[in-house]
Simulated scan of single mutants.
Amino acid sequence: MNETAPRALVVDDETQMLGIVGFALETQGFEVVSARSAEQAWSRLRAEHFDLLVLDVTLPGASGVQLCERVRVTSDVPVMMLTARTTEQDRIAGLLAGADDYVTKPFSPRELALRAQAIVRRTRDRAPSAGEVVVNGPLRIDPARREVRLEQRRVQLSDVELRLLVALARRAGQVVTWAELLNEVWATGEQHGGRDMIKTTVYRLRQHLGVEREWITAVRGTGYLMVRLDEPQAPLP
C-alpha cells in the first residue's frame, strides 16, 4: 500500500467488536488505535494523524453519525461506518453525515479489512498527473491538488465527493451508470445499498455546488448525468 503502515482509529463501545475489527485490519497491515466513545475518538483525532476512521453508529453519548458530522467540518479522513441497523433511513443518515462507506453487522472481517484497504489506497494514490485538470464551464477541478473552484468560489469536498464529481465532470453531457460510478468511485461492484451511497453523495455535491443551476441530473433506472455547464440553461422558476 505504502512504505508506512496506514493508521486506523476504530471506535466502538463493545470490547469484542474492537477486537474483531482491530485484528482484521492488522492482518492487512494497519496500525490500529481504539476508542470507546465519540469524545475519546475526537480527542485522538485532534492529537494524531489517521488514515481511516472505522466508526460504530451506536455509541454512548454522541452517536457515530454526530461524530462523523463533527469530523467532516475539519477533516476529509475516510470514514467507514459500522451499523446493526439495516433500514434505508439509517444508512442514508450516515452517508449524509459524510461517511465514505458503511458495513452492516454481522459482516465478514476479511471483507471489511479489504474494503478498508481499498479506501486508504484510493486516498493515498488519488493524485493523478497535473494534466488531468477537468474544466466544465465555470467549474474547474484539479484532482492532483484536490482543488475545486466554481467561478471565484473554492468548493470544499470530501475525498469521495471529489472522486464522484470528477467521474461525472469528465463525462459531462453523458450518462454515467450506477455500476460505473460504484466501480470508479468506491472500487466495488453493485451491492446492497450501493445506490444509496451514490444518491446521498450526489445530494451532498448538489448542496456544495448550489441550487442556482441543476448541475447533476438523475437518469431514471440508469445513473446520473452532469450537464455541460458551458451551454446556456433556463433559470430555475
Score class of each variant (00 low, 15 high):
92 I>A: 15
138 P>C: 13
4 T>A: 07
191 Q>F: 13
77 V>W: 08
59 L>N: 03
112 L>S: 01
27 T>C: 07
86 T>W: 10
4 T>S: 07
32 V>Y: 10
169 A>H: 08
51 D>M: 01
87 T>H: 05
80 M>S: 00
208 H>N: 03
191 Q>Y: 08
175 V>C: 08
57 V>P: 09
196 D>F: 11
48 E>R: 11
210 G>P: 00
233 Q>N: 10
152 Q>N: 07
225 L>C: 08
83 T>L: 05
168 L>V: 04
161 E>F: 11
176 V>W: 05
162 L>E: 00
30 F>D: 14
20 I>W: 04
228 R>G: 03
154 R>L: 07
108 S>R: 12
7 R>G: 00
27 T>Y: 06
204 R>K: 11
207 Q>E: 10
44 R>A: 13
59 L>S: 05
153 R>N: 14
92 I>V: 15
181 L>Y: 04
40 Q>S: 12
232 P>K: 07
37 S>R: 05
93 A>R: 14
221 G>R: 08
208 H>R: 15
72 R>A: 01
118 A>M: 10
33 V>W: 05
62 A>V: 06
20 I>M: 15
138 P>L: 15
4 T>G: 03
155 V>P: 01
100 D>A: 14
53 L>W: 00
128 P>Q: 01
63 S>M: 12
20 I>Q: 04
46 R>P: 00
164 L>P: 01
211 V>F: 12
189 G>C: 10
197 M>E: 01
11 V>G: 08
42 W>D: 13
80 M>D: 01
192 H>V: 15
9 L>F: 13
71 V>F: 13
46 R>T: 12
181 L>R: 04
203 Y>T: 11
70 R>C: 08
150 L>C: 03
102 Y>Q: 09
28 Q>F: 05
171 R>V: 01
131 G>F: 02
100 D>P: 08
220 R>H: 11
225 L>D: 04
202 V>Q: 01
19 G>T: 05
190 E>V: 12
12 D>I: 10
72 R>N: 03
73 V>M: 15
194 G>I: 11
89 Q>I: 12
224 Y>H: 14
127 A>Y: 02
142 D>C: 14
161 E>Q: 15
91 R>K: 15
145 R>D: 03
9 L>H: 07
154 R>N: 04
44 R>Y: 13
110 R>Y: 07
125 D>K: 01
150 L>S: 02
65 V>F: 02
200 T>V: 09
42 W>F: 06
129 S>N: 02
217 T>E: 15
214 E>H: 10
10 V>A: 06
190 E>M: 12
118 A>C: 14
125 D>L: 00
40 Q>V: 08
